[in-house]
Amino acid sequence: MAEKEAKRGAGMSTLLKVNNLVKRFGGVTAVNDCSFEVQEGSITALIGPNGSGKTTAFNIITGYLKPDSGTIEFDGKLMAKPTPSSIYRAGLSRTFQQARIFPELTVLENLVISSSFGWKDLLGTRVTAADRKRGMQTLEEFRLDKLHDLRAKDLSYGQRKLLEFASVLMSDPKLVLLDEPTAGVNPVMIETMEKHIRDRNKAGVTFLVVEHDMQLVMRLCDPVIVLDHGSKIAEGMPEAIQSNPQVLEAYLGS
């Protein structure tokens, strides 16, 4: 508690600012006038019942979807025409709910392809000595180094999620959005994932995490933002959120 309070008070600046996002799919309003902020250095949770618009919000923030209206500011700059590529290269990484990796590439190559190399590197060696060194370092951190030569399709589901997480760190992002990092993985892997999020957070990376495992959210995240029907209905410390009547209503009522 005290530690969290201290962090909160340490004069943090806003890294991501989401302003009045709206996104409709036909008749469904997936994201409805949604605004929230992510403070630099935090592990912010984004929770809400199924279908409350969390993934859609991620897709808009990372340039995969155009919002009907609303704006995104990242690192003090308005993202005018965000594309997935420009967002990634600007230092905002994300993972997907269904672990998307490149199954035909090896584990190490999955890291190399994500290292946002330049136009000239394109003509150079597939995996240079420098690529290998840097990639293996990250794989060691994630204890995937022994598997570096395997095709990514031969990994277990949990290992794929871990690999996806590791690979989007190769651009040295400031902010990482994780969409349900522990969904469908075993309890040991959940702990592993938690450890890596903490480690990287200590190293200065900010996180915005969509997560259904409430115990994990309570342990790991501060603050917690709650979405319901595409809008923010509450925000605060995990302890306060847990007893917030509106939040209970949203979860029970849906």
Binding site: Y64, P84, S85, I87, E104, S114
Partner: peptide, 11 residues
């Protein structure tokens, strides 16, 4: 393998 994912990791 996955062009949209490739876009999202800056390829």
């Amino acid at each position: 393998s996955d062009e949209d994912k490739a876009l999202g990791v800056g390829v």
